[in-house]
Every structure is written in structure tokens, then in C-alpha cells.
Nucleic acid binder design. Structure first.
Lengths: 165, 165
DNA sequence: TAGGTATCGTACGGATCCAAACGATTACCT
DNA sequence: AGGTAATCGTTTGGATCCGTACGATACCTA
């Protein structure tokens, strides 16, 4: 029994374990790789960039979303970040307590609340994002540019087919 | 301000927002796609396959790991699944309470504990995994086989370069 | 214009997760 | 041999996250 297992070893062991079953190994390996990659990337970005600024991964995504889109309704922020509405309430509360975002109740529909970056939040993003992106760039540095493009396109089509139904 | 944003729209908006900065857009889009894909895939598999069996995503990964490798020390299970040792303690406790796994203290090193599937756990995996894989296959169904292979390889090299340092 | 339906943001319970601290056990080193 | 260092699994505390339920508000239709 080996101590540690690389992705490749795991895939080989999987084949042996279930070789008597009619399974789609390519699909299984692809999705396992996606999940591991997402975890690894998130962990590294969190530790290297976010933690020194006392920012959560989710909190950063919220800030980043508002940075890109200027102002958004809470439901759209949640959907864009990939968390539930209820989760966003707590995250937004934390970010607001730190003065990084503002809540702006809608005048047209009083059920709605818009979120946007405060000046402090904007300044924070301006200073953090270049650093964040530099780490991103380093992470994908070993992957050929063309392969990276294919990967991104494949992931995108996968997201669409997975979210649609 | 649009209501919903596709990955493509988000990438376009990102460019406009930060076009004055010297950034690596390909890297940013790639990692955003990975994260969204992982979330979407995990959500769909959880809802479609795991929830009916009252299984957590993490719990299933633990079972799956033990299914593939027969028996493992807890530290290796945690590392393989991508969670901390402390988290695994709780998850393993839950799975053991349901009689799906067994704890086997090591005789050679009394600090170590090995985990393995019980008979009930083995039967559960035998019945669930074909269904799980069928959904996996459906998710990647729209992606060309060759592109899928490139994507998987790119993700794998990305995991390695991201976990190494 | 009144009542039913839909959707908003929020509150709450439970599960998951991590980082740090801890006691127990083993390995190393002089 | 004996003491220090390293590593094991666990515990603890706090943050995150989801699903559900809820009141409030807006829309719709007869």
C-alpha cells in the first residue's frame, strides 16, 4: 500500500478496481482533475495572497465581482460567486463591517439591495489584484498557451452543460 | 447593468475594468473557469446522485478513496481527498456511525489508524458508483474526446505545479 | 382593486472545513 | 541509554456554507 498517490496512480488504481464495470474513465479522470485543481489553486491563492490581507476566498470573490461590475443586486452577486443567497448575507455583513463594501437599497424595488465597493474596498482591490494575478500567472506558467486555451474552452462548455440541467 | 453574466461576459468585463494594468488574462480566465467548473460539477453530482443516498460530497470522496485503495492511514486519506486531518476525523466519525467504514489501529505504530470500507460500505459503493459515473459521463458528454484529454493533462500539470511550492 | 403568486433578502440549524494546540507515540542523535 | 525533535490522530474554536423557512414587497389577474 503506497503512502501517497499522484493523480496518475489513482487513475490506474481506479481502472483496476472497477475494470469489470462498463465505466467512462475519461469522464471520471477529467472531473477528478478538475476538483483537485480547483482545490489546489484555491489553497495556494488563499495562502499566498489573501491570507496576508486577512481576506477569505469567498470574500475576495465578492469584492472581485463588485470590482468588475461596479454594482450588483445581492442575488446576482451570489449567483456569480457561486454561493447561496444566505451565505452571501453573512459574507457581505463581514465585508461591510470592515468598510469594504456598501449596501444601497434599491429605490425602484424595495425588496432589492445593491452592493458596491466602498472607496476603501476599491483601493484594496487596486492594490491586491495585481499581486493576485501574478500568482495566477505563476500557477499556469508551466502549461502551454495553446493547451491552456483548449482547457479553458472545454471547462467553459462543461460549466454550461452542467448548470443548464 | 445586466442581470446575469456568463463566463464570457465576465471575462470581457474584466478586460475592460483592468485593461490599463499589465495582467495575465489567460491565467485569470483559466483559473476562474476551473473554479466554476468544480463548483458546478460538485453541485450537480451531489444533488443528482449523492443526496438521495444521504451522502456528503466529502463523505463520498472518503468512501471512494477507500474503495480504490482498500485500506489507508488516515493522514493519507485526508491528503488524497484534499481535506485537513482534523476534518477527516469528523467525517470518518460520521461514516463509522453509519457503519460504512471501520477503524483498524496499526499494530506496528500505535500512533496510526487505518481506515477501510466495511461490508456495508463496499456494497454501497458497488451500487452507487455506476450511477455516479453515468452522471459524470453525461456532464462531459458535450466535450470532444481529444479536447477532454488535453484538458485533463493540463489540469494535472497544473495541480503538480501548484502543490509543489 | 383585492387576493393569489412570485421573488426578494434575511434568519436559523446543521454540516463542513481549517488552523492551531494538544497528548501520545515514535524516531533521531549524541 | 536518554533526552530532544518529529509525527501521529484528535480536539477545539471560529468561519463558511447550504437548505429551508420566513416576513416583506412586487407583480398579476380577474
Amino acid at each position: 500500500m503506497p503512502d501517497r498517490h499522484t493523480l496518475e496512480e489513482t487513475e490506474r488504481a481506479t481502472r483496476e478496481r472497477v475494470q469489470h464495470l462498463p465505466l467512462d474513465f475519461a469522464a471520471s479522470h477529467a472531473l477528478l482533475s478538475i476538483y483537485r485543481a480547483a482545490n489546489a489553486v484555491r489553497g495556494r491563492l488563499t495562502n499566498a495572497v489573501l491570507r496576508p490581507h486577512d481576506l477569505t476566498w469567498t470574500g475576495f470573490l465578492v469584492l472581485w465581482t463588485l470590482w468588475i461590475w461596479d454594482s450588483m443586486e445581492t442575488r446576482d452577486v451570489a449567483e456569480s460567486v457561486g454561493i447561496s443567497k444566505g451565505t452571501l448575507t453573512g459574507v457581505a455583513k463581514t465585508l461591510m463591517a470592515r468598510g469594504l463594501i456598501d449596501r444601497v437599497p434599491s429605490t425602484e424595488d424595495r425588496r432589492l439591495v445593491n452592493l458596491q465597493l466602498s472607496e476603501a474596498g476599491l483601493a484594496l482591490m487596486d492594490s491586491i489584484y495585481p499581486e493576485f494575478n501574478k500568482t495566477e500567472s505563476r500557477i499556469v506558467g508551466n502549461v502551454d498557451a495553446e493547451q491552456l486555451e483548449i482547457m479553458t474552452a472545454a471547462l467553459r462548455s462543461l460549466v454550461e452543460s452542467s448548470e443548464s440541467d
